[in-house]
Nucleic acid binder design. Structure first.
Lengths: 171, 171
DNA sequence: GTTGGTGTTCAATTCAGATTGAACAAATCC
DNA sequence: GGATTTGTTCAATCTGAATTGAACACCAAC
């Protein structure tokens, strides 16, 4: 794990001003920490700093990404509750703008990214309990069972902590 | 973002029993969520479920990974405070065991993975404040400044939430 | 000194997952 | 109906990070 460095990993955005580029950089970094693809950071960052809603084609041309990437990225972001679709009377094309309510963003991330893994972990551990139980050596069985208990308590604490998180971050 | 699936992404561990394999699977999944490499999950998982401390060579042969991977993985895990080195009188080789105190694990993760990014974000935003200030159009400047303020408040909340997290998870 | 055991480093390779782009809907206008 | 605009899908490709493995450093024993 190399130390975090500044200024790495820049990309050129010929059609964007320095402010936009910087903001995008912040979000690209942010989504990387969360384990989300860079394109989500670029798209959200640009929408976040755009006074006007943008269309899919705007994103394609301004960010220099493919239509496919923009389409999938927008879908993910809508799933996270981070972007909302807007229909303008003037055009039949859809426009998008960033939702910036932190509570909503965190909630979406927890719902889409964290909870599924907690549940998957839960079920894996459930199966573990069975396998660990029917082990020969009682010495080992005891040890295994204590470890499994520990795992279960971790998951439980995870469940407890999520609502607290949302609470603390929600203003 | 494909939905989370069970049973994907398995690996063979011919020298390990079913319990060990399952536990490793849980941790591989866990570290993936945290954005850490799979090998960390394998190593930590095996140490977590091993009653006896293991040597580097044990990890290499039991997990079927390279010496380099094991060495680097152990270093990262020690940096996270997740693994401690033990010297046995009998041998001059080092042995390792998992540290299982949740508070310590969370603390290590925050210290090594979260804080550096928060600080990097902070500094990026700092530079932003300057660039945003000297923008022509006052209408746009106002908008930019409000967004930057929002970013700053997010970072501040992040800083607040970390100690709370540790508190809640620490028993 | 030398030899053997133990662990680290880092350039080369591999691999998972992100991105692309072309084919394909779907909806609107003529 | 066909032509055009807008957006989606998904196999193929690309890219960056993880892993390898061989060279190297260190140290203990002899």
């Amino acid at each position: 794990m190399p130390p975090v460095r500044e200024e790495d990993d820049i990309r050129e955005f010929p059609s964007l001003g320095p402010i936009e580029v910087q903001v995008i950089q912040v979000f690209v970094d942010g989504v990387k920490v969360l384990g989300l693809p860079r394109s989500l950071g670029e798209i959200y960052g640009l929408l976040f700093i755009s006074p006007e809603p943008l269309s899919l084609d705007d994103l394609v041309s301004l960010l220099g990404i493919s239509k496919g990437s923009a389409s999938q990225g927008l879908r993910s972001l809508r799933g996270l509750g981070a972007v909302r679709e807007i229909s303008m009377e003037s055009s039949r094309r859809a426009f998008y703008q960033a939702d910036t309510e932190l509570k909503r963003l965190v909630g979406g991330f927890i719902r889409e990214q964290v909870r599924p893994h907690l549940e998957s972990g839960q079920s894996k551990i459930g199966r573990l309990v069975d396998v660990a139980g029917d082990h020969e050596d009682p010495r080992q069985r005891e040890f295994f069972e204590s470890r499994v208990k520990q795992l279960e308590s971790w998951i439980k604490k995870g469940r407890i902590v999520l609502p607290v998180l949302q609470k603390v971050l929600g203003e």
